[in-house]
């Protein structure tokens, strides 16, 4: 990152502070800045960023912080001109998680929201499509990326286990004992 870019970044960061005092800069990794913001500020900030160069939504992803009873949603924006990435993180409660869709700002969010709905059970108000299943047809358990979904227990319950004994041993015999 060059000096001029650094000053551009600093100017932008100052502007961001002025406009959104509740947004907390959590981590600055040079070309990647992570902000913790309030869910109510999300659309304001996204709209502002989209008009300031962050034309690309790289992805949206969820993290289940089960011990804190929260879901984190991370909106990942990239400005190709400046080479600067902004990660916006919001936290919402784990029961009946709901958040407004951002498809009105970034159309590309549609399928990310649908994927998150499927894997975390987070509802995106305003994105009806997101309620439909995408990857998991006829899924019959908790949304699988939640931390309380135990994939091994699920597969043990769902599928029959097969056991084999080792065949190729010394002299073709099999002096083994399964421990």
């Amino acid at each position: 990152m060059t000096n001029s870019m650094n000053s551009v970044k600093a100017r932008w960061a100052a502007q961001m502070r002025g406009m959104f005092p509740d947004a907390r800069l959590k981590k600055d990794r040079g070309t990647e800045m992570t902000y913790e913001i309030l869910p109510r500020d999300l659309h304001q900030i996204l709209a502002y960023l989209k008009n300031s160069g962050w034309r690309q939504l790289s992805m949206i992803t969820g993290v289940d912080w089960i011990e804190e009873g929260q879901f984190e949603l991370v909106y990942n924006l990239f400005d190709w001109e400046q080479g600067l990435r902004v990660l916006l993180s919001i936290r919402i409660g784990r029961d009946k998680p709901q958040v407004l869709t951002i498809t009105n700002i970034y159309a590309g969010a549609q399928y990310y929201e649908r994927e998150i709905h499927e894997f975390f059970g987070i509802e995106f108000i305003g994105n009806e499509d997101a309620l439909k299943s995408l990857f998991l047809e006829r899924w019959d358990a908790l949304p699988p990326l939640r931390k309380d979904f135990d994939s091994r227990a699920y597969s043990d319950k769902k599928y029959v286990k097969r056991f084999y004994d080792p065949v190729y041993g010394p002299q073709g015999g099999a002096p083994f004992e399964r421990s």
Binding site: S58, M59, N76
Partner: peptide, 20 residues
């Protein structure tokens, strides 16, 4: 502890992992 988004240019474009 920490999180980051790491990206590379793949043959098809920006490919990345968000790691926590």
């Amino acid at each position: 502890k920490g999180q980051t988004y790491s990206a590379v240019e793949s043959a098809r474009g920006e490919f990345g992992y968000y790691i926590v």
